[in-house]
Nucleic acid binder design. Structure first.
Lengths: 147, 147
DNA sequence: CTTTGTGCAAACGATTTGCAGGATG
DNA sequence: CATCCTGCAAATCGTTTGCACAAAG
């Protein structure tokens, strides 16, 4: 769990012109501490154990706000739910087709993509790769059952 | 508009064990003829001009069915809506950050991705790249306004 | 004829909104 | 103390479901 300094979180929020409220702090800190790309509901559920009164609307609104100012990003990989990620470093995603788990893949694990034969007229600002397959655990499980 | 033979559509549906109904035919044919990754609602709206009585539920259900049997695929690139694509050839997507347009990028326009330095334990079955930037029209527009 | 598909309307789940009171800078 | 944020509940939006009837093979 990458512990992030309180001060750093406060600085980040202030730097975007956002007021530091206990709710906003809690949501952002929670997301920074997780690597599982939670949904708004999952964040709410987990936080309600620590900060008993955190309203649903606030979580949704806060995530939207943080996303707008660029402190977090949306991860859209399944129909119907929006997941969030506080890892703003460019990176790719691996989606396990068995368990649905989403794993961050550091940018340098995939070589740079050659865009030179892209039809002209496209100005690419950024890109990301989504890999689909079996994760460590699901791959192992499959092998064992085939034996 | 890539015209697809009626017979071919019927054959495709039958090959998946699906009955050929006017509604199913219309939805699939419509999606095959479009390159704009429409939402269920957009398909419904367009078809209701030709086939006046096509219910909302049928469109949603049909898209779900076609997606399950592998004749079409879901495209999840914005929060809250599911778009569909009848182009089943592997390909990438370009998303215009100005107009939101989604454009298919043929597989061969991007060189193969080097997966060799991926941490072990990942069995990649397939992948796709999402490019973000300015499309032809939006890029031009921007240049002109800067002059 | 058996089974699968359709239409309708109600149900649903995730997310958003309006508004009044509360906290931040 | 002006502004921004929160909580609550109701509203909204995309999608799904139950059920009775209709159509496909």
């Amino acid at each position: 769990m990458p512990r992030v300094e309180k001060e750093e979180i406060i600085r980040a929020l202030r730097s975007k012109g956002l007021r530091v409220t206990p709710q906003r702090f809690a949501v952002y800190a929670n997301l920074l501490a997780r690597r599982d790309h939670p949904t708004a509901e999952q964040i709410l559920k987990q936080l309600n154990q620590e900060v008993p009164t955190l309203s649903q609307a606030t979580v949704y609104l806060t995530l939207q706000t943080l996303s707008e100012v660029g402190l977090i990003r949306e991860v859209l990989l399944e129909q119907g739910v929006c997941r969030y990620d506080a890892n703003m470093a460019p990176h790719h995603h691996f989606v396990c087709t068995s368990c649905g788990q989403i794993i961050d893949i550091p940018w340098d694990c995939l070589g740079p993509i050659n865009l030179s034969s892209l039809p002209s007229g496209f100005q690419v600002e950024r890109y990301e790769v989504t890999l689909y397959g079996k994760c460590n655990q699901c791959g192992d499980r499959e092998e064992r059952s085939q034996t």
